[in-house]
Design a protein around this nucleic acid. Sequence first.
DNA 1: TGTAATGTTTACCAGTCGGTCAAATTATCC
DNA 2: GGATAATTTGACCGACTGGTAAACATTACA
Lengths: 215, 215
Amino acid sequence: MAIPRAAKTQRRTRIQEEKEEKILEAALDVFSVSGFRGSTIDQIADVAGMSKPNLLYYFRTKEAMHRALIDRVLYTWLEPLRAFDANGNPESEIRSYIRRKLEMARDFPRESRLFANEVLQGAPHIEDELKGPLKDLVDEKAGVIKAWAKAGKIAKCDPYHLIFSIWSTTQHYADFDVQVLAVLGQEHGGGGRFEDAARFLEQLFIDGLRVKPAS
Amino acid sequence: MAIPRAAKTQRRTRIQEEKEEKILEAALDVFSVSGFRGSTIDQIADVAGMSKPNLLYYFRTKEAMHRALIDRVLYTWLEPLRAFDANGNPESEIRSYIRRKLEMARDFPRESRLFANEVLQGAPHIEDELKGPLKDLVDEKAGVIKAWAKAGKIAKCDPYHLIFSIWSTTQHYADFDVQVLAVLGQEHGGGGRFEDAARFLEQLFIDGLRVKPAS
DNA sequence: TGTAATGTTTACCAGTCGGTCAAATTATCC
DNA sequence: GGATAATTTGACCGACTGGTAAACATTACA
């Protein structure tokens, strides 16, 4: 008898790698649009071009697919914040963090929506990740920002809310893309919206955080 | 025979008003968490304390409930932007717009999440509202902001992206509340997060938009 | 108070949901 | 090439989905 589940085998077949990849790719398509509850295995199977029982051969449950997807995407997603360098120049660090996050919103909107859907619905599947790895990373970087403020390199401000505001403004262009496009219309919405956003946000954050002369 | 659906009657009964109110209240609870696809009539019926067929007596379909809810909430939701006054002082107008939006995120998070869910999933039910009333209103206010910039009252900036950034930063505290709470932890997350956010955002936007001396 | 209109419920339907199972097919390796 | 393990499929299950039909209960109003 074969081992009942591919996931339990020690060595991963070439087929396993390919198919799991294909499934997660399809799952990202579906979960990122409809959220966990709103997505169905059949939809994912359709997109993947595989039969439903075949998906369930690689991932025992819908939850397992979702979990695997989250795990795979989370690390990459936090990369820009991780790259935030305490020894760098504050202004250019913030600038490049904004630019990187905006590039991710442009190039990986599905990943952004996956998390947005999940958090929006109360984060029932990623609470631990938020309170653990995410919080730890943010705490660390908040410390860096606080030190910069104390040293007079940037204006005094709450580092946590600064990070929140960079997250929200940049991810907005992935998560709420239809709204952005609807409001900008065809004339401004074309391809330039990310460059326009980058220009605006860099200006806002750099000027907003510049140290003010004592008045 | 009675008219088959209450919705078709000319005059609304007291009972109709009460029950439709109760249903929409429950629908807001459910739709705002799970989105349209992820929500079920049974869930709404449970929350409303009514039987499923009874809900369907007042709203023929799940879509009708959702539609009615959107219609009712949209007007209120745009109120703060509508209040944006061209004749006011730019700084205080922006400041009070931010404050108002933040108060709404605090006091009406379900409404915010209702729209967030909808837009996030491609806005299949509110595309017209986005391209119509919303775009028109934003176009108008963007004109106001542009005029302010031209008159040298605030720094030159893209008015659309300014509005987007105010939307995203403020609504973040409603839509991603679990994440905010998880990151801030218990020590900072308590009740003060909205005041802290207000302080930070006002500083960011006011200083960020202040006219810079020609260097 | 009677009666017609309004409101509510029980029972139900067809389609979809996540998931199982055993049989059939394919890849692997000696 | 054949045995064996890995992969794929169709048929199926019970629970749930949005929605209906009709009997039943309640209200409003002359």
